[in-house]
C-alpha cells in the first residue's frame, strides 16, 4: 500500500525544507503514540510470554486449553455476536428511515442518536439496572398489561446483558449505515424499476450491495466494542457471566496474575483487531466488485 492511494492533492516534488516542516508537524503526535501506545503494547506482548526460565506459552495454553477459560472467551464472543446481530436488524431499516427524514424530524432523530452516544456508559448501564429490577418499570408495565402474572427476574440475566449492550452500542451501527444510505441517489430505485425490476428485487440487487461498506463498518465497530465491553457485563450480569474483560481486570486488580492477565489481554486484542481487519478486507472486496 503506498501513499498514492490517498485522495490528496500531491505537491509536485516537495522541496526538502517543506518536507522537513511536515515531518516536524507530525512528529510530536507520532512520538507520543510510539512511546505510549506502540511500545507498551509490545511490552505487553512480551509480558504475556514471560516465565521464570525464559519465554513460555504456558498462560496461553491455560487460556486456550481449559474448558473454563474457553467458556470465558466464548462468553465475550457470544455477547458481541448477539449484540451485533440484533443491532444490525434494528439499525439497518432505522438508518433508511433516518436518511429519508428531513428538517425537524431528522434533527430530532439525530438528537436521539447523539444524546445517548454522548451520555456516559455507566449512567446508561445504571439506568438499565433500575429499569429491569423486579419492581422496575419494565416489569410493572408487563404486569399492568396483563402479559405476565408475577414479576420476572431480568436483572443479572443474559437478557439484561444483551438488552443493555444493544442499547449502548446501537448508535455505532446506525451512524455508519446512515452515512452511506444518505449518499445514495434516490433515483437508483426508479432506474431499476425502469429496467423492469420489481421494487423488492431492485432493493436487494441495487440498493443493498451499495450499503455494504456502511454495514461492514457498523458491524466491525459494534463487534469490537461489545467484545471488549467491561462496564456493561459488570453492572448488568456480574460474576455469573465472566468475560475476557472482567477476567483481565480481575487478574490485575485482585489476583495479581499479570502474566495471565497480559495473555488474556493479547487474546482480546487479537479478536478485536482481527474483526476490524477482516471487515476492512471484506469492504474492499465488496467495493472492488
Amino acid at each position: 500500500m503506498t501513499d498514492t492511494a490517498l485522495p490528496l492533492v500531491k505537491a509536485p516534488a516537495a522541496p526538502g525544507r517543506e518536507r522537513w516542516l511536515a515531518v516536524a508537524l507530525a512528529a510530536p503526535a507520532l512520538l507520543i503514540l510510539l512511546a505510549l501506545f506502540a511500545l507498551p503494547l509490545a511490552k505487553l506482548l512480551a509480558a504475556s510470554v514471560a516465565g521464570p526460565d525464559g519465554p513460555t506459552l504456558a498462560e496461553y495454553a491455560k487460556l486456550l486449553g481449559t474448558p473454563y477459560y474457553l467458556g470465558v472467551i466464548w462468553n465475550s464472543v457470544r455477547l458481541a455476536l448477539l449484540t451485533t446481530g440484533i443491532a444490525l436488524v434494528i439499525g439497518y431499516p432505522a438508518a433508511f428511515a433516518l436518511a429519508r427524514a428531513r428538517g425537524a424530524v431528522r434533527s430530532a432523530l439525530l438528537a436521539c442518536l447523539f444524546l445517548p452516544l454522548a451520555a456516559s456508559v455507566i449512567v446508561k448501564a445504571f439506568a438499565w439496572t433500575i429499569l429491569l429490577r423486579s419492581d422496575g418499570l419494565v416489569n410493572e408495565t408487563l404486569l399492568a398489561l396483563g402479559l405476565i402474572d408475577a414479576p420476572i427476574r431480568m436483572i443479572f440475566t443474559e437478557t439484561a446483558l444483551i438488552v443493555g449492550s444493544v442499547n449502548i452500542f446501537l448508535p455505532f451501527m446506525i451512524l455508519p449505515i446512515y452515512t452511506v444510505v444518505a449518499q445514495l441517489d434516490p433515483r437508483l430505485m426508479e432506474a431499476a424499476a425502469t429496467l423492469g425490476a420489481a421494487p423488492a428485487e431492485a432493493f436487494v440487487r441495487v440498493v443493498v450491495p451499495l450499503t455494504v461498506p456502511g454495514v461492514v463498518a457498523g458491524v466491525a465497530l459494534v463487534f469490537s466494542l461489545a467484545v471488549s465491553a467491561y462496564v456493561v457485563p459488570t453492572l448488568l450480569i456480574g460474576e455469573r457471566y465472566p468475560t475476557l474483560s472482567t477476567t483481565i481486570a480481575k487478574a490485575y486488580l485482585l489476583a495479581r496474575q499479570p502474566t495471565f492477565g497480559a495473555a488474556a489481554g493479547v487474546v482480546l486484542l487479537v479478536i478485536a483487531v482481527a474483526t476490524v481487519a477482516l471487515s476492512t478486507r471484506l469492504a474492499r472486496l465488496g467495493g472492488a466488485r
Binding site: 432505522a94 436521539c112 444524546l115 445517548p116 449512567v123 439506568a127 429499569l131 448508535p171 446506525i174
Partner: peptide, 9 residues
C-alpha cells in the same frame, strides 16, 4: 430505536 435509546436517559 429512538424510544429504546432514550429510555434509559
Amino acid at each position: 430505536a429512538a424510544l429504546f435509546l432514550l429510555a434509559p436517559l
